[in-house]
Design a binder for these strands. Structure first.
Lengths: 354, 354
DNA sequence: CGTTTCCATGGAAACGATTCCACGACTACA
DNA sequence: TGTAGTCGTGGAATCGTTTCCATGGAAACG
């Protein structure tokens, strides 16, 4: 850890630190001779400016923070990738934090990002407006919410309109004759969990399908709860003939347990997932999904954050979602899955259809 | 962006900045009265220490950098997750960078991490020992290589012994009657690309299988090159009856194109991938993989980095790999894939076997 | 040739924290 | 009661950089 400072560079170039600093930061008020000397000295010593000292003096760091709720969720991995690329293109580096769907980790990272004086933060928030997320807005640190929002916090956001896609999915299932759709929901403490659940509830009512509350299982957006959800739903006296999972990890958990139970997706039970993940199309049968553009989301989030940093107050953006029909949901219903529970006489194509 | 400094806290508490600093950093040489006063003042003002200023004075930042080559590769997403959790448990925050398999982005992030004076860096390096990666070791910045190494750089590393797993895979395919195995390799500029290719070459020779150089396609560890590889291999006059992909994104690309060509994995052509990704087991047929533990890799990398930071020189670790046989490779060969190319009389179970 | 303007330069203050050092007050021991 | 040791405290130096301000020399003007 040998420390090479601007003082060393200045000494080698035979100028003062002030001049060296001016050259290194590209100030016009420098002579060609000084420019050449300092540049040569810096190169020779492999000088790297101390970002701490620089930030201490000049109050901006050319860096932004990105806090996602789960890096292992491919949706957020993709988001991290696009945000990072967009930020890099604008000259910012991205510090990525992973809240792991836990509020205390979110607070921990938020504190760190505040301490490190990032110029702005893109966050997929969880929890309510308490804790460090409140400090963020009280200190007027440029912030943009992505994918999720927090009630009562007036922060620009980029989110998805889940309504359209979910309505399309329910319509599609209803048209295939399904009347009992099992819904594996996200937690109601998270805005996307609430929105998607509300959209599902409205759609089910609109198409006259069963509103049996037992058909909804509340998971936590992680894989294990998808498995638990399928398990719970299939144990019902009147199990659903179609399943809708509110995010991709829960869909993965659902698929795993369906395989284990020997149920054929697309024939014994239809399945649709929210979030389009590249390899969902590679499954057999290919998985129907509700798709929304993670590239747009990341790109727009960065653009909005830069506006906020620049003093603007951009309007929030809502991106569309749409159903992509593949084999996992396209066969007409073939009856009740072979659940160990009693086969209910009320299932199958129902008179309540439409 | 209102700035609350330790000066404000000290003033409110009615003590000097020195005393405030001592209380806030938990020095024992403080009176209970001072402790209480300063703590109250800090809480009331919602004081967050300026990490820049702190680091400037005390030369360590309680943060590490993690530079992965591709966040969208689930292997590295998992790695990021474990590294971050392990670091957090040790009191460090992780700054994640994504090189995107591009050397100039790797250099860019490395420079940033050096500038920000992270206490140490875990990196999955790409390229040779030139560029910023050399500055890293010349400055004696604590560094640990993970997954990959760089020739000629004496840096502690955690890697996988690809040899065992690949040998098992080739043996398994040979036992099923395959004599022509197509290999979708990683780039030879990356250590894992070289190691796995070398292991494949040795295994193929050992088991007396075809060493036809056309059976090797050199990809870039990303999905598109997996597709291109399958395409090229199946166009051979004597196409392979089994495929081995050197990482998971290329396996995904391979599967996509096999589907598109209407080839049945596990029957028309066997497929094995390096890297065990959770959902590979969910494919139909389930994908045989060469598995290695990403959790161990991340955990050990952090442990080693902390040792280096503490002044130690830990031994490099090589983790084992093993074949996990699933349906994609377990059927005996059924002959030549229905390639649009002419069916060669020499393919199928061959006299050259063993 | 004298005065003004311009401009590159160096000295020094500032950013916000930590930490060395000195000081005063107190306890404890002889 | 005098001296030594302990302990909490404040002043000031320090980290590496940027930036304000003053300075001095050269160019430009009349």
């Amino acid at each position: 850890m040998v420390a090479i400072t601007i003082k060393d560079v200045a000494a080698l170039a035979g100028v003062s630190v002030a001049t060296a600093s001016r050259v290194l930061s590209g100030s016009p008020a420098t002579s060609p001779a000084a420019r050449a000397g300092v540049a040569a000295a810096a190169a020779q010593l492999d000088y790297r400016p101390n970002a701490q000292a620089r930030a201490l003096r000049s109050t901006h760091t050319e860096s932004i923070g990105l806090l996602v709720s789960d890096v292992r969720n491919p949706f957020f991995a993709d988001l991290a990738h696009t945000v990072e690329q967009a930020a890099l293109a604008a000259g910012y580096v991205t510090l990525l934090g992973n809240a792991n769907e836990r509020k205390e980790q979110q607070d921990r990272y938020l504190d760190t990002l505040i301490s490190r004086r990032v110029d702005g933060i893109v966050v997929a928030p969880l929890g309510d407006g308490s804790g460090s997320i409140r400090s963020l807005i009280e200190r007027k640190i440029p912030t943009v919410f992505v994918d999720r929002t927090v009630d009562g916090l007036d922060v620009p956001s980029v989110t998805t309109d889940s309504e359209t896609g979910i309505r399309q999915a329910v319509a599609h299932l209803a048209a295939a004759g399904h009347t009992r759709i099992g819904y594996i929901s996200g937690p109601q403490a998270i805005s996307t969990g609430r929105d998607r659940f509300a959209a599902f509830t409205r759609a089910v009512a609109e198409f006259g399908l069963s509103q049996d509350p037992d058909l909804v299982y509340f998971g936590d957006f992680q894989a294990a709860s998808g498995s638990a959800g399928v398990h719970a739903l299939l144990e019902l006296r009147q199990p659903p003939t179609a399943l809708l999972a509110a995010d991709s990890p829960m869909a993965v958990g659902a698929i795993a347990i369906l395989h284990k139970r020997g149920l054929r997706i697309g024939r014994d039970v239809a399945l649709i997932a929210f979030d389009d993940i590249e390899w969902f199309a590679l499954l057999d049968p290919a998985l129907s999904v509700i798709s929304h553009s993670v590239e747009d989301m990341g790109r727009i989030a960065v653009k909005m954050l830069l506006e906020v940093i620049g003093g603007g107050t951009p309007e929030s953006v809502v991106l569309p979602s749409e159903l992509i029909i593949r084999a996992s949901s396209s066969a007409p219903i073939s009856g009740v899955p072979d659940s160990p529970a009693a086969v209910s006489p009320a299932s199958g194509p129902s008179p309540r259809k439409n």
